[in-house]
Amino acid sequence: MIQPPGPRLFCWRRQRRAARVPPGPLRDYLAGRIPDLSSDCRETPFLAVDLETTGLNPAEDQILSIGWVAMDGLTIRLDTAGQCRVRPTREIPEASAVIHQITDDQAARGGSLGEALERFLEVLGGRVMLAHHAAVELGFLDQACQSEYGFACMIPTVDTLRLAQDEMERRQETVRSGGLRLNALRERYNLPRYKGHDALNDALAAAELFAAQVSHRAEDKPLPLHRVLHRPGPLW
């Protein structure tokens, strides 16, 4: 099967970057294999991820925690669930403390950003990242790797928000305001409303949403991974 040039180019660039990054967690990650991009979504290993941050601007705001849970195909494995708190270097703005309910005291018990990244990149190895509105996660992770290792990370990613948007466009539905929020989309697929909103819960919520999206879209035909892969402009 002929692959579209985008993913192949992406793999090639990733390998090239691995050669330039100094030894460490990011190099190990980039040098590691990523799943075959032509494989069926239902057989792909994923890692659903959610970040909690002090704001939405990667250049100014900081990561407070990283939550994740692995998915093998469409089975979410709770034994892999994990969450890392990060001790921020600046005070947490009051507004974001209200949303995450993470206070300075709690955050102070977290580890350093480097420790969190190291663990995260290790579990991400060999998996495709899955996130809702992945641009935020990618932006913050790039920024974090940049500051820790001097290079941005290149993570193959699936964005559940983008998938929902594509699906609505395909059906020529108008998107209502807030209609692409995680909870609104989950409701469409009869998924329960979760009360907790820590990084792990939201990662799990995104994983379930993805399982629902693929189940509803794929019928019985295979759904190749590259068809759902997130395409951030400059990478393809």
Binding site: L78, L191, L204, A211, A212, S215
Partner: peptide, 30 residues
């Protein structure tokens, strides 16, 4: 919870799915 996995089955899917194994215990969340 750490021993569980989460599965989503759309309307019309056979249940339990073909790959199920004996004694698997399914709990309906929704």
């Amino acid at each position: 919870p750490k021993s569980l996995s989460v599965r989503y089955l759309r309307r019309g899917s056979p249940f339990p799915p073909a790959e199920s194994e004996a004694a698997d215990l399914w709990l309906v969340r929704a």
